[in-house]
Computed example of a mutant assay.
Amino acid sequence: MKSIFVLIAAFFITIQSLDLNSLRIAYKEAVQDKTKTEALHASLEKINKEDKTEFIAYKGAVIALAAKHTKTLKSKKEGFIEGVTLLEYAIEKDPNNIEARFIRLGIQENTPKILKYKSNITEDKLFILEHFKNIQPSSLRNHIKDYILQSKAFTDEEKSLVLGS
């Protein structure tokens, strides 16, 4: 029954034109819900390295996120590596893409230390803060602001700067 729901949800998401705003919302929900992670993972299956940087970054993040729901340690590790490799490719492809950096920051901040994937937190945080006022569209700026305000990576001073923007 659960598999049918996942397939229907994935089909529904794929049928709709996949726009970035919908993807942002779906990703935020997928972080909290295994079923939504599976549906989003399925809907991003056709995304490849020639697509927009943001789509590639979200696909990598969702692959890494889906890995935590697999059964074996080996599949968790392989899925995580596949996901972060794709995410890193997106950033390498477009190093000034604030959304890709934001996605990586979220993954690195919330990844267990044992995975040793935390080396860009300060770099991405500073990049985001430096470019925050110029983020367009405003829906992306608000999405990033919401994350910053609940993040432990940002100081209270940095959060107040974002609130003042």
Score class of each variant (00 low, 15 high):
139 S>C: 11
61 A>F: 01
98 I>N: 11
10 A>W: 10
145 K>E: 15
71 K>D: 12
106 G>P: 00
51 D>I: 03
97 N>I: 05
16 Q>V: 13
25 I>A: 08
114 I>D: 00
135 I>G: 10
5 F>M: 14
36 K>C: 01
114 I>H: 06
148 I>A: 00
93 K>C: 08
25 I>W: 15
52 K>P: 02
103 I>Y: 02
33 D>S: 10
134 N>R: 08
130 E>Q: 15
156 D>R: 03
110 N>V: 03
53 T>W: 08
84 V>E: 01
140 L>Q: 12
48 N>E: 07
134 N>P: 01
37 T>Y: 00
94 D>Y: 00
161 L>C: 06
68 K>C: 02
76 K>V: 05
131 H>R: 12
36 K>L: 05
32 Q>S: 14
22 S>E: 13
83 G>H: 01
89 Y>C: 06
157 E>M: 02
35 T>Q: 08
151 S>W: 10
55 F>T: 02
135 I>W: 06
139 S>E: 06
124 D>S: 03
36 K>N: 08
118 K>S: 14
70 T>K: 15
157 E>T: 10
72 T>D: 07
59 K>W: 04
120 N>F: 05
23 L>S: 09
90 A>H: 02
64 A>G: 13
111 T>H: 09
87 L>S: 10
164 G>V: 14
80 F>W: 13
73 L>C: 04
151 S>N: 04
64 A>W: 13
103 I>K: 07
140 L>R: 03
36 K>P: 00
63 I>T: 08
165 S>R: 02
99 E>M: 14
102 F>Q: 03
100 A>E: 15
49 K>P: 01
56 I>Q: 05
97 N>A: 04
82 E>W: 07
80 F>K: 14
74 K>E: 03
37 T>A: 02
103 I>H: 10
133 K>P: 00
4 I>C: 05
107 I>V: 12
126 L>K: 15
61 A>V: 07
16 Q>R: 13
